[in-house]
Amino acid sequence: MEVMQGGTGSASPAIEARGVTVAYERARHKDTLVALQDFDLEIRSGEFVTVVGPSGCGKSTFLNVVAGLVPPARGEVFVEGKPVRGPGPERSVVFQDYALMPWRTVEGNVRFGLEMQRRVDRSTRERIARYIEMVGLTGFERAYPRELSGGMRQRVGLARALVTEPRILLMDEPLAAVDAMTRELMQDELSRIVAETGQAVLFITHSVDEAITLADRIAVVTNRPGRIKEIIPVPFQRPRGRDVRNLPDYIALRDRIWSLLEAERHTNRSQVEAGV
């Protein structure tokens, strides 16, 4: 049911990361920071995978590698079987800080990706309207980002990502800057929208509840340098409402992820921060 844009038809997974290692040079500290080390992850087409981990564990870095914005030092990421050499139209990114163009209206921002990919044609206007409606912003087409709340801005970010009709959605803590109540509501909506559009989703978060509410599988990441600690399947049907949170299975799952993360908190950071 999820896989509606199955047009790719290939057996290769949407995203396949093999041994991805990323290191940043820190000029100020005169050292190299290993953000990710030998990171492996596979996301099937139409699958929703959330990545949780302690802050600074490199989970956002991983998303940037998949997006083609950061080149890995070692290892490789394959998107639909092809190695990533840069951004591509089959992927769209939703950013934590929204990254909307402040001089563009809602409509103009949603249009942005299509313009960059030179895909503006006669159907564009209608298509933009459709996605603006999907994220619930009809009536705000002419508003500027500064006139919108955080939640509404991220709706624009989501519409901008969806309008190019990507097969893979990369979401970098998209709801982290949104207030708590809006966040819950937007999780539900996101569930519904993605179930409708059928993308494979890589979703970075530091909220355990958000991870369980949204995902087919949850990847728990270790402290820096980030590595997969465990991958946990979520046994509930998707899209799912918040009511699953009362189920005993949910509570058990939540406890398990928490204890995994808690164990990470107590690992010795100095040992982890050793150079390359």
Binding site: A67, G68, L69, G86, P87, G88, P89, R91, S92, V93, F95, D97, A99, L100, M101, F112, G113, M116, Q117, T164
Partner: peptide
Amino acid sequence: SLVRAARSFCA
């Protein structure tokens, strides 16, 4: 961050 967003859309 705006440059990064543009690049993510293949700009």
